[in-house]
């Protein structure tokens, strides 16, 4: 028996199929995961994109539509997934998926391009409390993305550059738009790119950390969302949180879809 989790983002769909395996008589969830990540053009309607992606994912996984007992959707476009029986918020799905991958995690920090949030999770992956800074680019990956463009570096090179710096330069501007001018003046003052990169990532980390403090930081801490791929940010976050380690999931893109699939398995 399979369940499916579908994470409907703004420009991509992630699908995870979860197989429920019987182990020693008792039903137990095994991570028999089949996953698919499909990008779609922006002008495609979300419900059409969801249907197309799901059909493609079933084919890639070699599964018949009937083999999947239950589909739960998550992500910004979760309500457009017409064939899902249920939908859950990114917060619930993210926490569930993250704690499944790292059972010791009690604090889940989710930093994507457009939002940053701190989630306090129970041992079963349920959300106890969360605090977010949505709809302002300053507390999210978009801030770093925007500054990396000002430095003419890819986000990846930007993160790596920051690792080469040990300097702490405070950024005065809180707003992404104003910070761009501040970065430009730092460039004009011949500040090394790696120092600027670290200053930017430290700034995002301190904002995200302040949000996480509202829910209380309990170890272990796991980071999910797009910023997982940015080792410079991970270091800045460790520093801001004052913890020795921040856990990272193996398949960061699929945490939300996995969480939705797990929730689907629990409710069916």
């Amino acid at each position: 028996m399979y369940t499916a989790g579908i994470d409907m983002g703004a420009r991509s769909v992630k699908v995870v199929f979860l197989e429920e395996l019987k182990v020693e008589g008792a039903p137990q969830l095994k991570w028999g995961v089949k996953k698919t990540h499909i990008m779609f053009p922006e002008d495609l309607d979300m419900d059409v994109a969801a249907e197309k992606a799901y059909t493609e994912a079933l084919q890639l996984a070699g599964l018949a539509r009937e083999a999947v007992g239950r589909v739960v959707a998550t992500g910004a476009g979760r309500k457009q997934v017409k064939f899902a029986q249920d939908n859950v918020t990114e917060v619930s799905a993210g926490a569930r998926g993250a704690v499944f991958m790292h059972p010791s995690a009690r604090t889940v920090i989710d930093v994507g391009a457009e939002e940053g949030r701190g989630i306090k999770a129970a041992p079963d992956g349920k959300v106890v409390d969360f605090a977010g800074n949505e709809k302002c680019a300053a507390g999210a990956g978009a801030f770093a993305e925007s500054m990396s463009r000002a430095l003419q570096l890819s986000l990846k090179d930007f993160g790596e550059a920051s690792l080469r710096s040990e300097k702490t330069i405070p950024m005065n501007a809180q707003c992404t738009v104003f910070a761009e001018s501040e970065v430009v003046s730092l460039i004009h003052a011949n500040t090394p790119k790696e120092d600027i990169a670290k200053a930017v990532l430290d700034a995002v980390a301190s904002r995200v950390c302040a949000m996480a403090r509202r829910v209380g930081i309990e170890e272990d801490v796991v980071l999910i969302g797009g910023m997982v791929h940015n080792p410079g940010f991970v270091r800045s976050l460790q520093g801001a949180l004052g913890v020795d380690r921040v856990l990272l999931p193996d398949l960061p893109e699929y945490v939300g879809a996995l969480g939705a699939a797990l929730i689907a398995a629990e409710i069916h």
């Binding site: 306090k120 409390d129 969360f130 605090a131 302040a210 949000m211 403090r213 509202r214 829910v215 209380g216």
Partner: peptide, 8 residues
């Protein structure tokens, strides 16, 4: 102000 304002 977060220290004085827990999310709960």
């Amino acid at each position: 102000c977060t220290a004085c304002k827990p999310a709960g």
